[in-house]
Design a protein around this nucleic acid. Structure first.
Lengths: 212, 212
DNA sequence: GTCTATATTGGGATAGAC
DNA sequence: GTCTATCCCAATATAGAC
């Protein structure tokens, strides 16, 4: 049975770990993952370098921990929500819903999504990691698109490619757009992307009847 | 007036410079810009480190030189080609033409475009460089979109944002797609992107009359 | 201009006291 | 577990002979 001192030791360890993760998040969203040094994190967290390695083997492992935390948070919010394969992405509301969730999650976890993006791009291009990562991240979208194809809908091309292309646009915009999350800007982004991806630059075709 | 030995000296210097640029191009497309060390370049070029600094102040300056070479090559091929603002990107042929040129140029200069992409993403996110770069690279598209708006066409959102979103998709796909340039794959990519951006996932609207 | 050899530095990682 | 102090190396950059 743990003594009081042992327990308190554990608590402090957890505090340190949390402080490191928190400092990392703050730094990542500002200077980015690549330019943030381990010493920057420890300094911002008010801990020592030695202490860092007691908790993480390196910066990449810390990023994995942040990712795990993010996924836990998402799972918690999504608990019990069914997500059947047969969503119709050519339905505006359903498409908007998907893009909205994706965008919101990315924005709310910007330090992490941004770090993952940098890590992906910093890797050697020849490894094909970028395609693999994008493919994984857009798995759900791909399934929905494949479902559409099965039902006889004519997509502009290969579902896998289209899904990756959509993902590429989203993650890069998430990186490039600086406006703070949760505001009016997010709504506008989601609306624009929805309409762009639904009907393209040409817009919803105005039926001859409408013009009369 | 330069002597024979002086001229030959200049020639050898130019050769070295060219060898360094060439080696860099080869390495960039494989391991990427960020992971390529200056010593890698000099080794691949069969020159010494000291010699490198005689030609470039650093890796970033070498990249600028590569960029300049690329722009020269483009200018040369585009010489005399008018590019009026009043292109209609809701016309399939014109849209496809723009996307095709953009994609082909990126692919043919993949070492450079890839390096520029990595450099853009590696920068601190807070500086807004990503948005600025994407905005610049899509200037032509933006102008065409603004022209459409002026003519009363309803775009899915702000022209600047749409142009950047299109650029984000293109440059990230250029990074992620590994297939060699110039092949059948390029044609398919261009076709898919054209149709996706023209009419979206829903596809060209089938008029009620067509279904009868 | 190009080379070899060396200086320099930033930052990741560990040793050992507490 | 946390700290301070130190080691270590990779990679940049320079010095100086040729």
């Amino acid at each position: 049975m743990p003594q009081a001192s042992t327990a308190s030791r554990k608590v402090r360890a957890a505090q340190t770990r949390a402080a490191l993760l928190d400092a990392a998040r703050r730094l990542f969203s500002d200077r980015g993952y690549l330019n943030t040094k381990i010493t920057d994190i420890t300094a911002a967290a008010g801990r020592s370098t030695g202490s860092f390695y007691e908790h993480f083997a390196g910066k990449d492992e810390l990023l994995q921990a942040l990712l795990a935390e993010m996924e836990d948070a998402i799972d918690e919010r999504m608990v019990g929500l069914e997500h059947p394969r047969d969503h119709d992405l050519t339905d505006r509301d359903q498409l908007r819903d998907h893009l909205g969730v994706a965008w919101t999650v990315m924005r709310q976890n910007r330090p992490v999504t941004l770090a993952l993006f940098q890590a992906m791009v910093a890797d050697d291009p020849g490894t094909g990691r970028a395609w693999r990562d994008l493919r994984e991240q857009t798995e759900t979208i791909r399934e929905h698109l494949e479902y559409l194809v099965e039902r006889g809908h004519q997509l502009p091309g290969d579902p896998e490619f289209i899904a990756v292309a959509m993902g590429a646009m989203l993650v890069t915009l998430n990186y490039a757009v600086l406006t703070p999350p949760g505001g009016e800007d997010d709504r506008r982004v989601i609306d624009t992307l929805t309409d762009l991806l639904l009907h393209g630059l040409a817009g919803p075709a105005s039926h001859p009847a409408d013009e009369a």
